[in-house]
Simulated scan of single mutants.
Amino acid sequence: MTVPEPYALFVTLPGWEGLYFQGVGANMVEGFPHEAKKYNDKMIILSPQLNDWGETSANMAIELTEYFIAHYNIDTSRVYLHGMSGGGETGSIIMGKRPELYTAYLETSSRWDGDLEVLAKARTPVYLAIAENDTYYGSGYLKNTYQQLYDLYREQGLTESEIREILVLDVRPDSYFTQQGYRDQHSGGNAFSADKEVMGWLFGKVKQQTK
């Protein structure tokens, strides 16, 4: 009997426009769930419409992830999380609660609200991408988050190369967005969805399974 090939799982949390009260399917305007299909045709993609940007939606996203892992043939070494804008805030809370559930986390055009101590213990890889002059958040929040997490890893004794494997800060200049037709650098964060360097980093991560 042939054993079915397991599927990777990608959970992408949308920003303001994707909240439930914006209407059914409003979350699908972002490019992340669509572009993700190009990286793995054996992947289940979930783009839930959130209730808020806080604990409620964070807990719901965790439960959704656990449900799919429990009820579908999921490759637990390839479970990915992404959050855009407010969805990134939600994603960061998830990383402060259950980072071990995910292989890697991509946060775009957002700020960090989660517990960095919990994340640092799990060492789940994180990629932080934002515009230098993000019109909603600025880039200072994520720069500060990067430094705090970097310092926690140094305290653990990790080397520079080891930290680079699990922590990336990617701050893009104005020109990156204007060249792609975005006048607003916050909504321009959607450009990261078509960036092979960014998305390739996320889906290139594979969790080492412990026996």
Rank of each mutant, 00 (worst) to 15 (best):
G157P: 01
G138H: 03
G189N: 12
G189C: 06
Y146M: 10
Y153S: 00
Y137R: 07
S175Y: 08
L119F: 01
A104N: 02
Y150I: 10
Y182G: 04
S109V: 01
L116S: 14
S187A: 06
P173H: 11
R172C: 08
S161D: 15
F177Q: 10
T135C: 00
N144R: 12
T145P: 05
V171Y: 10
P173W: 13
L152P: 00
V118M: 08
Y182L: 13
G140V: 01
Y105S: 09
K121Y: 03
L158C: 05
D134V: 01
T145Y: 03
S139G: 05
L119N: 00
T108S: 11
N190F: 11
T159R: 10
Y136K: 12
L101H: 10
A129F: 09
Y141E: 14
Y137M: 07
Q180M: 05
L167G: 02
D113S: 14
Y127L: 14
T178H: 13
G188E: 03
V171G: 02
E165N: 13
T159P: 02
V168N: 09
L101I: 12
L149M: 15
S139M: 00
T159G: 02
R164W: 08
Y105D: 11
Q147L: 15
T108R: 03
Y150N: 15
F177I: 11
L152E: 05
R111V: 14
W112I: 07
S187W: 08
S187P: 06
A104D: 01
Y150R: 15
G189T: 14
G140C: 01
A131I: 03
E160K: 08
E117T: 05
R154C: 04
D174M: 07
L116T: 07
D174K: 12
Y182S: 04
T103M: 09
D151C: 06
D170R: 08
E165S: 14
A120W: 12
I166P: 10
L128E: 12
E160D: 15
P173K: 11
V168E: 10
G140I: 04
E162K: 05
Q185Y: 15
A104Y: 03
L158T: 05
P125K: 14
T145K: 04
Y105F: 14
P173I: 09
G188Y: 11
G114P: 02
D134H: 05
L142A: 10
K143T: 11
A104M: 00
T145H: 00
R154P: 07
L142W: 07
Q147C: 04
V126W: 13
T135I: 00
G157L: 05
D184C: 09
D113R: 10
K143H: 08
E132N: 14
F177M: 07
R123F: 12
Q148S: 01
D170C: 12
Y176P: 13
D170S: 12
K143I: 10
H186F: 11
E107G: 08
P173R: 11
L169I: 02
T159V: 04
T135F: 07
